[in-house]
Design a protein around this nucleic acid. Structure first.
Length: 482
RNA sequence: GUCCCCAUCGUCUAGCGGCCUAGGACGCCGGCCUCUCACGCCGGCAACACGGGUUCGAUUCCCGUUGGGGACGCCA
């Protein structure tokens, strides 16, 4: 039988990293078994659902390469279906009308909490109906409640958690239809899971307590119960469920921050799942090996530095052309709107091993694209540049200026010659040159940097550097002071 | 409070009774490489929550304790 899974977010906010992981697990599992991955937007709460959230979720999934095979479907389009199921249950005596006011229910819960027992509906309207038939007060607002079995146990073999069982008398009669006539979550889920032929539900373990209720509904409606796999939650640094308040940001924020979707997926898949001692996975490997039944049962804490490390791997493994659009976008955000695409493409390989994110890459390569001479970093200037004697620096400048061809080999030769002439180590010349070129003490190889920066910019910056060296009085000249 | 779930280095994990003086990865600390920074390589620090069982033998099985998380809505 073909596996059909669904990812069912409610559009009340962006897609955060925890939701993305749920979607990823659904997606990967269906890929491996050749199943169908369905996206269903659970917008039965019309008050809190927004179009912006729908768009953000769609965009986030798309960025991660988790586009659904079917959907998105919207529960708001299926209201009739849900209500039909509710009325069928009502007609079959498996549900009833409850006229309790919110105030009554609030008071009930308050009392129960005070008595330190689990807050739950006590079924007072269920018994009244049993005695009196349909209550007369149909003009009064009412909700439709499900008659939850009062005895026995409900259990299922969870694909991740193993056997989970609930005592039925722990559960109360849940609301199926609100007093405004709209269906609630548990009803809609069951009707849709059935209607869409969902046979494997992969979701967060915060839904475990909904599962016995949903099983009851499947049974009452006479429908086949899907298999369930409840994934352990992803926790924030404080160890509690990821929330908007604590650490949960949109997955699209990770795009902004220079992460690759393949890296985010790779990082996420290793939270609760492993394949031998392998850490780095391609999308194809994940799709080939991931099985939801291999997922562990304990929650994981989100760890940014591991994500960064994984991202670094994916940046290094990527073809430079793949990185080009993202780097151009990052440069644009830094005010570099029309860099020479050839140059950008050419420098990428130099920065792949040097950047864990594209943000870092853009920051580090910025010196290639600005026109003005960069201000020198204080520490770099003090340590490497200012102590440099002007003579070899100027000699190198002349040698470079005289180069017939601006290529790596001749540049290196000029360096070697100057270094030999003055009896220096390469670093003694390379570092001040690096500071003059980049304003910092770190960059790709100095020959490559000179070559890629180009003759004009290089000579200009070196000339400025030479001037600075020559105009700076030697460090220890107390003469001027006294 | 009640119910459900979880429990190996700081973090992610391997381990499915003896192969464990507990393996890998991130991070951290040394070192090597080296024109800098990275990458890469080598090494180090670092964990089976506790108490009972079961067993010839428990990280591994069972029970309890403690700790953590989740759920208790006319939200999803």
């Amino acid at each position: 039988m073909t596996v059909r899974t669904r990812f069912a977010p409610s559009p009340t906010g962006f897609l955060h990293i925890g939701g993305a992981r749920t979607a990823l697990f659904c997606h990967l599992h269906t890929r491996r078994v050749g199943g169908t991955f369905i996206l269903r937007i659970e917008d039965t709460d019309r008050e809190r659902s927004t179009q912006e959230a729908v768009d953000a979720i769609l965009e986030g999934l798309h960025w991660l390469g988790l586009d659904p095979d079917e959907g998105p479907f919207f529960q708001s389009d299926n209201t009739d279906l849900y209500l039909a199921a509710a009325h069928r249950l009502l007609a079959e005596g498996k549900a009833y009308r409850c006229h309790c006011s919110r105030e009554t229910l609030d008071a009930l819960r308050t009392t129960q909490r005070e008595q330190q027992i689990k807050p739950r509906y006590d079924g007072r309207c269920r018994t009244r109906v049993a005695q009196d038939g349909e209550p007369a007060a149909d003009d009064q607002p009412f909700v439709i409640r499900f008659k939850t079995p009062t005895e026995g146990v409900t259990a299922w073999e969870d694909q991740i958690q193993g056997t989970i069982r609930f005592q039925n008398d722990e559960l109360d009669d849940l609301v199926l239809v609100r007093s405004d006539g709209s269906p609630t979550y548990n009803l809609a889920v069951v009707v849709d899971d059935h209607a869409m032929g969902i046979n494997l539900v992969i979701r967060g373990e915060d839904h475990i307590s909904n599962t016995p209720r949903q099983i009851h509904l499947f049974q009452a409606l006479g429908w086949e119960i899907p298999r369930y796999a409840h994934m352990p939650l992803l926790h924030g640094a404080d160890g509690s469920k990821l929330s908007k308040r604590h650490g949960a940001v949109s997955v699209l924020q990770y795009r902004e921050d220079g992460f690759l979707p393949s890296a985010v997926n790779n990082y996420l898949v290793r939270l609760g799942w492993s394949h031998g001692e392998q850490e780095i996975f391609s999308q194809a490997e994940m799709e080939q090996w991931f099985d939801v039944r291999d997922v562990g049962r304990s929650a994981a804490i989100f760890n940014l530095s591991k994500l960064q490390w994984v991202n670094g791997h994916h940046i290094r493994a990527a073809h430079p052309d793949q990185l080009l659009p993202d780097l151009l976008w990052q440069l644009a955000r830094r005010g570099i709107h029309h860099p020479d695409p050839q140059l950008v493409r050419a420098i990428i390989p130099e920065f792949q091993p040097r950047a864990k994110t594209l943000v870092e890459m853009a920051d580090k390569c910025l010196f290639f694209f600005v026109d003005s001479v960069l201000p020198y970093d204080d520490k770099a200037a003090r340590k490497y540049f200012d102590p440099t004697p002007p003579a070899p620096f100027c000699a190198l400048l002349s040698a470079l200026a005289a180069l017939p061809e601006w290529q790596v080999q001749p540049i290196e030769a000029a360096f070697q010659q100057t270094v030999a002439q003055y009896g220096l180590e390469v670093g003694q010349l390379a570092q001040p040159v690096r500071v003059a070129l980049t304003g910092t003490a770190s960059s790709p190889g100095i020959y490559e940097t000179l070559h890629l920066l180009g003759r004009e910019k290089s000579l200009h910056r070196l000339t400025e550097g030479a001037n600075r060296l020559q105009n700076t009085p030697p460090a220890a000249t107390p003469a001027e002071k006294s």
